[in-house]
Amino acid sequence: MPEQWTVTLRIYRQKTNEPSRYDTFTLEVNPDEYILDAIERVWAFHDRSLCFRHACHHSTCGACGMRVNGVEKLTCITTIRSVARPNAVLTIEPLRNFPIISDLVVDMGELYRKMEAVEARAVLPITEAEIEKPPHQWKTEDSQYVRLSDCLECGLCISACPVAATSQPYLGPAPLAAAQDHRLDRRPDLLTLIDSEHGVWRCHSAFECTAVCPSFVDPGRRIMDLRKQTISAKIRHFFGK
């Protein structure tokens, strides 16, 4: 028999034209289940009006980002055990820094617009992917092989970012990380946007993005590197190269 815990989900609710509130649901769970499974059960068996977004259930689509006890989590891979104890109350809230559509669902259109603005790569040659260095030994002639890039466009980094909280036009961690991945020496056309007042210099180096990123993008490090790329690009530009 799998272990059984009782936990209470305290879920943020918000319907159009109604005040927000928290609803509580007490469930029997297996602690090794994922938070998203518990939320889906609330919808299936307790309250059909609950809105939440999910698709892949294995950390590839970026749809299920929420705040669990105030911390951004990809709920499909976050086990209950990793954030709770028996009889705990788990507060589930939508991501911050995005408009709420309903309950746990936010409108991430702004993030996608910014990802489009930097033409973030959805797939990249496997020879450029960070993890396919040895032991796989891809050779340059293998560049016809591509893989999906790491960023799930889940918005966790935007929700956690203190600068995004105060400045909506700020490009933010994921789009800046995507620009870094292009490299400004290959994409000098991106320099104006990255070097603008809403670009790479707005970051306060809080590294909250890296702390919450579920997919190894490490946006904080990439933003620091993008600053170096920006300076080099400006020097190149200054010397007319």
Partner: peptide, 14 residues
């Protein structure tokens, strides 16, 4: 009733 691909499609093997 949900969002795009919340049913079988999102959870497909791929």
């Amino acid at each position: 009733r949900g969002d795009i691909c919340n049913g079988t499609s999102g959870r497909t093997h791929g």
